[in-house]
């Protein structure tokens, strides 16, 4: 298992909530969506890809087949699902440092929610209710959500720049436009390199060692070659 893929972390937290108060939570979500200013802090935390809160009623869990035993649940549940860049600590701490009030509002009615400040009980609450990610795929392991947004901005600006180019453009005019292009992109030109280390699991440490001495790249290349061969046979 790993909650991490490339620079992204997937977090699932599921917490019980009484059905008698679940509707209040739904109301709060509805208001938050209607008034975008309530989510301003969340949006300013640029390490977050997105965050989603869903209330699942006690009878709404999937029942796939009549042979599946029926569960008897006492509570409704709130599922929190988010993808972000950085470590678990950085994410949870950014939340509590920056928007403790918002967190408390969203989790207010959840059973035994300790409030987001002080930090240690909140850490324990999230850890205890977190469901580890069994499978997690990331198509762009080197990219953060900021990197993706920046790449799109650079692409759009470049296309626009090219469209505005003319064969008879003067050198001065070109330089001016080129400088304006760079200036407009000055917060979108960060490099995209391997991720800083957040995991100290034995598997990841060993993998990094192999990456550093070059053997991991060779293994991957060999693997790909073998797979390519297989496909070809078919």
């Amino acid at each position: 298992m790993s909650n991490i893929a490339g620079k992204a972390y997937a977090m699932n937290v599921i917490t019980p909530i009484r059905w008698t108060t679940a509707w209040l939570n739904k109301l709060i979500f509805w208001i938050a969506l209607k008034r975008p200013s309530t989510l301003r802090g969340l949006i300013t935390l640029s390490l977050i890809h997105y965050a989603r809160w869903v209330i699942i009623g006690k009878n709404q869990f999937p029942h796939l087949d009549s042979s599946q035993p029926k569960e008897k649940l006492h509570y409704s549940y709130m599922l929190f699902f988010s993808n972000f860049n950085g470590s678990w600590d950085q994410y949870v701490d950014s939340f509590t440092f920056a928007i403790p009030g918002g967190l408390d509002l969203f989790w207010k009615w959840n059973i035994r929610y300790p409030k987001s400040v002080a930090l240690t009980p909140f850490h324990h609450y999230i850890r205890y209710n977190q469901i580890e990610t069994i499978h997690y795929y990331n198509a762009y392991p080197l990219a953060t959500s900021n990197d993706v947004k920046s790449a799109k901005a650079v692409k759009d600006a470049l296309i626009q720049f090219q469209c505005q180019s003319a064969d008879d453009e003067s050198d001065d005019n070109f330089l001016q436009r080129y400088n304006a292009l760079l200036r407009g992109l000055q917060h979108d030109l960060g490099a995209m390199h391997p991720t800083p280390i957040v995991s100290m699991s034995a598997y990841q440490v060993e993998r990094r060692k192999r990456w550093h001495d070059g053997s991991l790249q060779k293994e991957i290349a060999a693997q790909q070659a073998a797979q390519g061969g297989q496909n070809h046979d078919r």
């Binding site: 301003r40 300013t44 701490d93 440092f97 928007i99 403790p100 917060h187």
Partner: peptide, 27 residues
Amino acid sequence: QMVKGSKPGSMIFNKDAFDTPGALSNR
């Protein structure tokens, strides 16, 4: 506590977005 501004290449101070302006630095 910053977001991109409407002027290309600018960042602006997103006042009141966080509980306190230095929320991400103070700890």
